[in-house]
Each structure stands twice: as C-alpha cells, then as structure tokens.
Design a protein around this nucleic acid. Structure first.
Lengths: 213, 213
DNA sequence: GTCTATAAGATGATAGAC
DNA sequence: GTCTATCATCTTATAGAC
C-alpha cells in the first residue's frame, strides 16, 4: 500500500477520534497526514469513504488484540475483568470515541452507517461466542438471547463513551454499576442446585411477561 | 415569549432531530422556522446556544410527561412496562435521537456538553427516585448503586438509539435482551426468604471482587 | 425586531499542469 | 501520483437600513 494512502488512513482515524466526525474534512485529514487535500478524492473518492476505510482498519486491529484473551476466559467474572481492561485500553486509544462519532454520523450518511455497522459486527463477533460459551447450561440461557445481549452491551458502551465527555464522574459511576450488575448475573449463573431451581422456575414464570402485557 | 423566538426554538429541536447536530446551522434552522437567519444571532447569540435552549425545553417537556406514571409504579416489572412505553414514544418523537446528537457534539462544543448534561440530569432525576423506591429492602440494594445504575440505563438508551440507525434489527433485539435482564433483576428482587438469603450471601462474597481482582 | 448585504472563511470536488 | 488553482456553495457572524 502506498505511503500516502496509509498516511491518509491513519490521519482519518485520528481526525474522527480527536476532532469528531463532523469536523473530519478532507482538509483537516490531509493536514494531519501532511499531504495535499486533493489526494483524499484521488485515493478514496469521497471523505466518507476514506473515513469508512480508516475506521474499518482501526476496528479490525483493535478487536484482534483481544481474541486470545477472550478465548481464555472461563467465567463471567473473568470476562468482566477482560472487559474492564479492554474498555480502559480502547478508551485510551480513542477507539470507542471513534465508533461513537461514526455512529452519530450514521443517520445522515449511508457510508458512515455502513462503517458503523461493520464496527459493531466485528466487536460482536468477538464477544458473542464467549458469552455463548459462558452461559451454556446456565438457568440464564433460557431467558438471555446471547446475540441480543452482545449488541446491547456494545451499544451501551457507545452511550457511556458519549456520556463520559458530558459528565465524567457520572459516567464512571455508571460503568461501575453496570459491572455490579454483571456480578449479579454471575452469581445467579453459579447458584447451587436448590437455589438454582428456585430461580429457574421463577424465570420461567416470568419469561416474556414484559412483552405480553 | 415572542413568536420568532418560539419558532426558532421549535425549529432548532427539529433540526437537531432530523438533520443532526452537525447540520443544524443557523440557516437550516431559520429556514425551518420561516424567519431570517440573522435572527438566530440576535435572539440567541450563537447557534449552539439556540440549540442548547431548544433541547433544554424539549427535554423538560418530555420528562414531565412521565412524572405521574413513574410515581404510580410499584414493581420493577411495572417500571419495565412504563419504560417500554416511554422508550417507544420518545423514539417516535425523536427526543432520544436529539439527545444522541447533542451528546455526539459534546466533545467539541462546551455549550452542547452543558445541554447534554442537563438532559441526562433531567431524566435521571425522574428515574432515580423510582429505582430507589423499588429496590429498597432488596438484596440488590447492597450491590446496586442506584444513581449509577440510573445513569447507566440512560446512557445505554442513547447508545441503542444510535445503533438503531445503524442496524435496526440488531438494535431491536438488543433492546429486548435488556428487558430480559431486567426481568432477572426483578426475579432476584422478589425471591422468597431462603433463596434470598442464598443469593444475598453470595453477592456479599463477590461484592467488589471485580474491582479488587 | 426584522430585514438586506456583506465579510471572512471553510467545504467537497474537479481540471489540468507536471 | 501529486500538485496548484479554482468553482460553487456553505458556514458564522456583523453592520446598518428600516
């Protein structure tokens, strides 16, 4: 890959992270890359397509880092700790902010919508099999839709990232409380036979009650 | 309040909802309001300040609608149903999309950050006392930080709103799976004395383990 | 309070020299 | 592949007529 292309891709990801999707123009990106503005259009056609390519690469790289760690997790508590480290690292690198910016542009830019969808799918593809494995055989398996929960978690972290720029203290507290909730799930998941049966029968009775009335 | 001011406020909220915060310029807002572009600056100083005022009003009005319903809720399942109706309605009116757009502009615009914080605080002020009341005396009260959970829920819905424009089917599934999780919390909350004690002791043993390990 | 006109600048995108 | 130059259009914001 040509040097200019690579520089533009790196600069575009940084621009989205630091300036936001709305301010990631051909000129600001090119300035970051140290190349001429017209090269954005020569190499990528439109600004959105450059951003799409750049964020796709960034997401691929980021998600790949955790494949091995995810594979080694054997409990929900363990997943929680990997998740905590992952979240801290990705926030520091700005990848979550990048995804949040991407998604905020999605409603009015089909190319950014496509890029956002790809990003969410990549992360979900990493997380989903882990959750599937950890919840197998649990009383929760009957009520929890793993693909759905995977997406809910991913989307929640996007929302929390945006909240962090709005009210850092409140966002940090919110994150901790989500982790507490995960501990609850873990506890229910690991109950002894008697308690387990009690919870299970209650879950059965309630299952879908929120949907049906 | 003058007619022009009111028209600009209504138009600004609509512009943020439908065009996105990035495209909500003085000209697009004024065009929606049917007034001259210069009046944005005469009445509100800057575009951001107009947007802030408009979204503040929209949030006040939206949150107020649910005060009575929230007050009448007596169970987590009941809260879930109010939440379901609330979510459906606010999505339809575009208020969640408006908040998401507001928050996406927050990192690079202090005025939008202030508006976002206000919006989150208004909703949290409605939801927090309800959760506090419903969880009082529950084994969960020991592990759940209600203010934190309130913010986590609010932020999660922002993330889910953004996800909806990216992948509607996946977002809908994610929402359902969050509701299922709420049923789990409700079940644990309503356990009989024996099961309750078992869960409680396990929660105690685990409490904070995610933080300390 | 509302308008026109305008300043000063940013934007996406293209043409054409090299 | 890279550059300069340019177009048409958009932006925030202000000055000043009415």
């Amino acid at each position: 890959m040509s040097d200019t292309r690579a520089r533009l891709l790196a600069a575009a990801a940084t621009a989205v992270r630091e300036d936001g999707a709305a301010a990631a123009s051909a000129r600001t990106i090119a300035a970051r890359a140290g190349v001429n503005q017209a090269l954005v259009f020569y190499h990528f056609g439109t600004v959105s397509e450059l951003v799409e390519a750049a964020c796709g690469l960034a997401v691929d790289e980021a998600a790949g880092h955790y494949r091995r760690e995810f594979a080694e997790v054997t409990s929900l508590t363990g997943l929680l700790e990997v998740g905590r480290a992952l979240n801290a690292r990705e926030r520091a690198t700005g990848n979550v902010a990048m995804m949040a910016q991407l998604m905020s542009g999605a409603p009015h830019d089909p190319v950014l919508a496509k890029a956002s969808r790809y990003a969410m799918d990549v992360w979900a593809a990493e997380l989903e099999p882990v959750l599937e494995r950890l919840l197998a055989g649990s009383p929760l398996a009957e009520i929890i839709d793993v693909p759905g929960l995977t997406r809910a978690l991913s989307a929640s972290f996007i929302g929390l990232q945006l909240y962090e720029d709005v009210d850092p203290d409140a966002a940090a507290r919110a994150l901790v409380s989500l982790e507490r909730l995960a501990v609850l799930v873990d506890v229910v998941n690991d109950l002894g036979p008697v308690t387990r049966r009690a919870v299970r029968s209650r879950l059965r009775g309630r299952r879908g009650s929120a949907s049906s009335g």
